[in-house]
Structure formats: C-alpha cells, structure tokens
C-alpha cells in the first residue's frame, strides 16, 4: 500500500518533472506549480531551486555561461574579502557567506568594528548553516543562500508580520482548546516566531524535512510556514498543555525533538492544501 501510495505516484511525478526539465526555455511557472503540488525528487531539487531562484535563467543554452559568471562573481567577492583580511583560510564557510553578502549589499561593517553577528545576521547564518547541509558546492551554496534570503524578503517581507495572526486563525480552526491554553498562559505572544517565520525553520527542523518545506517557500508560498507551525503545536499538544509558563513553551519549541518531523511536514502540507487549495495548473 505504501509503495502504491508513495512509490508509484513518485515515479509518475518524477517522469512529469523530467518532461518539464526538457523544455527549452524552461517554463518557470510550471516548475513552480509542480513544486507547490509535489515534493521535488532529491536528484533534481538543487537544479529546480536554482531555476526558481533565478540563479539559472530559463534558457538552458545559457546555463553554462551563466554558471561561469556566477562562479566568477563568487571568486571576486571571496578573494577581495581575503585581501581585506575579513576572512582567511580558517573562516567557517557560513561566516564567509555572511561577509560576502554584506559586501554585495554594501553593508560590510568596518574591520575594526567587526562584531559578533546580531539580529538579521543570525537569521542569515541560520539559513546558511541549513543550506550548507543541503548543498555541497560552495558556489551554488552561496548563491542559493543569497537568492533565498533576497527572494524571501522581497516577496514575503510584507506578509511576515501577519503570519502570527494567521497561525492563531488556523489553530482556532484545528484545536481551539490548545489555542485557549496558549492564550491563557501568555505563551501565544512569545512563540518562536523568528525561528519559524524569519528563518523558515532553519535550525529547527532536520534538513530532510526542511527541504520539503523550502520547496514550497521557494516556489512561492510563505503560508506553508504557518501550517508547519500549526502541525508542530498539534503534535506536541499534550506536552504544551502541561506547560504553564511562556518561557517553558518557547524553550520547548525552540529545541523541539527531531524525531517526527517528516510526519509533521507531511501533515502540514496536507493541511495547507486543505485550506489554500492545490494549485491546479496542468503539469
């Protein structure tokens, strides 16, 4: 039954994605729709993400040239930072990526004032650490972090502040008792919203689960983040009902067990489709 449900469907899906990837130029719209509806097969994930994030253009004839340009840009920035002694051979890659990003957006701090990372830096580093788990090649990794962060802020920057309200709404639909408890204990106001809605669960979910959530974020939905949060709350309901202090709730959710995360993400995607519909473009 499992094979029929997941395996067979998976083969069909993979075949239709392969057909999409043979298009030249690639139909970015259709690739987004596919990625909204189905999990990406892991062998194609990075390629599809690069197209959806605009790292590779739709025309496959241009991929070799553009990849070369991307690699040159990476090399230019990283060697300049080395010359400026912002980084050296011992610098962890994620910190290198942070400094590269800061240089590119003209927000590189003075070297004399190099501080330990703060606020937005920490979000960037969390995303970088997670991306590093998913992407081996440093050039690809940097570009994906940079474009993920840029696209997320650009597309969803205005929506992020509303996501906690949205979470409250859907939780009231799914489990009003749990919502009432979270409200009464004062926990609702201090859930780990930054981890959930700024870092997109980077550092909160293991990479195998995280990449299925990011499939949806990269292909155009930030709502999925709300449903993942709802499912996390529902999964740990019994535990949460027993904690009466907001700090306790925050700490538990910030370091939640990493066991059932695949199931949580699967349920979250189902819930998201239930409330927001399945994108119906033919694939």
């Amino acid at each position: 039954a499992y094979y029929e449900k997941v395996g067979f469907r998976g083969v069909e899906e993979k075949r239709s994605l392969e057909i999409l990837l043979k298009d030249n130029p690639l139909d970015v719209e259709k690739l987004s729709t596919f990625s909204q509806r189905f999990p990406l097969p892991s062998m194609y994930r990075i390629h599809v993400w690069k197209v959806l994030l605009g790292i590779l253009p739709p025309h496959t004839d241009s991929h070799a040239l553009v990849s070369r340009y991307r690699a040159e840009q990476f090399e230019d920035v990283s060697s300049a930072l080395t010359a400026m002694r912002f980084v050296n051979a011992a610098t962890p890659p994620t910190e290198l990526y942070l400094r590269m990003y800061q240089l590119e957006i003209q927000q590189l701090p003075r070297r004399s004032e190099l501080r330990s990372p703060v606020g937005g830096d920490e979000h960037f580093l969390a995303v970088a650490r997670a991306m590093e788990e998913i992407v081996d090649d440093p050039v690809d990794c940097y570009w994906m972090i940079k474009c993920f962060v840029n696209q997320f802020n650009h597309k969803f920057g205005d929506s992020i502040p509303h996501l906690p309200k949205s979470l409250e709404h859907f939780l009231s639909q799914e489990d009003s008792g749990l919502l009432a408890h979270l409200k009464a204990s004062g926990s609702l106001a201090s859930l780990p919203y930054s981890l959930w809605f700024r870092r997109c669960f980077a550092g909160g979910l293991p990479e195998s689960s995280l990449q299925r959530v990011w499939d949806k974020v990269i292909s155009g939905s930030c709502k999925i983040l709300v449903f993942v949060a709802v499912e996390i709350l529902l999964s740990y309901k019994i535990m949460l009902m027993g904690i009466n202090h907001p700090d306790g709730v925050f700490n538990f959710l910030s370091n939640m067990p990493q066991e059932n995360t695949d199931a949580i993400v699967t349920k979250a995607i189902d819930l998201w489709h239930k409330y927001c519909g399945t994108p119906m473009h033919s694939v």
Partner: peptide, 12 residues
Amino acid sequence: QARGELHASESK
C-alpha cells in the same frame, strides 16, 4: 535569452 545572460554579466 540575451537578457538573461546580460543580467548575469551586469550582476558581476
């Protein structure tokens, strides 16, 4: 297609 390549070059 040309625009895609030009963008990447301009970005560099």
